[in-house]
């Protein structure tokens, strides 16, 4: 049986999806900045020559995972717009159910009963679609989280390499700081999204 609460819950789910999508922008922006930083760091490392020898493979590595993060975030963006559509569909079916229940109070016509059953099945189908999309999304976020753990490790290693880079030490140090900062921001956004996903999963159960 459907209640007003189901419709309210469905709307709250849309808000959660909206929050997730809003956080994606932060992730994408930070990942793009990381990629740019890797390119700048490569130039500095080249100019520094032998004194920054250990920094070059690090810049390659930053470049690699920032590209990976951008790619994953873009996949998430595509999935998210689909997620929005499904979440909206859940809202519409839950509203439909609510209105049918009111109609059922006015008449016991079999067509209403039939519509209620049909609507319920469609509602369950869309909720399952939403669940599956949310699971996918969670997987993507966990991938990025792993990439960010690597980024934090690299930030520490690059700091050591930067300290040996003589006059270029300060520039490379700021690269290390930037990597650490970006990784922290991305991790924060992802953790926020994982919290929203956990609430979303709880609501769909």
């Amino acid at each position: 049986m459907y209640h007003q609460n189901d419709a309210t819950l469905a709307i709250k789910n849309v808000v959660r999806v909206a929050n997730i999508i809003a956080n994606l922008d932060t992730i994408l922006q930070e990942a793009k900045n990381l990629s740019l930083t890797a390119k700048n760091a490569r130039v500095v490392a080249l100019r520094a020559g032998d004194s920054a020898f250990g920094f070059k493979p690090i810049t390659n590595f930053i470049d690699e995972f920032s590209e990976l993060t951008i790619k994953t975030t873009k996949s998430i963006s595509m999935l998210s717009s689909n997620l929005f559509e499904i979440a909206l569909s859940v809202v519409r079916y839950s509203d439909f159910q609510l209105r049918l229940n009111i109609a059922a109070q006015y008449t016991e016509h079999t067509d209403i009963h039939h519509l209620q059953q049909q609507g319920r099945l469609e509602f369950i189908r869309t909720v399952k679609q939403l669940e599956s999309a949310v699971m996918h999304l969670e997987g993507y976020f966990e991938d990025i989280l792993k990439q960010m753990r690597s980024a934090e490790y690299i930030a520490v290693t690059s700091r050591v390499e930067a300290s040996n880079a003589g006059e270029f030490s300060e520039s490379l140090q700021s690269v290390s700081n930037f990597i650490a900062g970006a990784a922290k921001n991305i991790k924060h956004a992802i953790n926020e999204n994982l919290k929203e996903i956990s609430l979303l999963k709880g609501a769909l159960r």
Binding site: R99, L100, A103, Y106, T107, H109, D111, I112, L115
Partner: peptide, 18 residues
Amino acid sequence: GIELFSSMLASLLKHVKL
């Protein structure tokens, strides 16, 4: 409008099948 849907549906079914 949306607000009338339930009572409209119930009233219509007195006259026609869906």
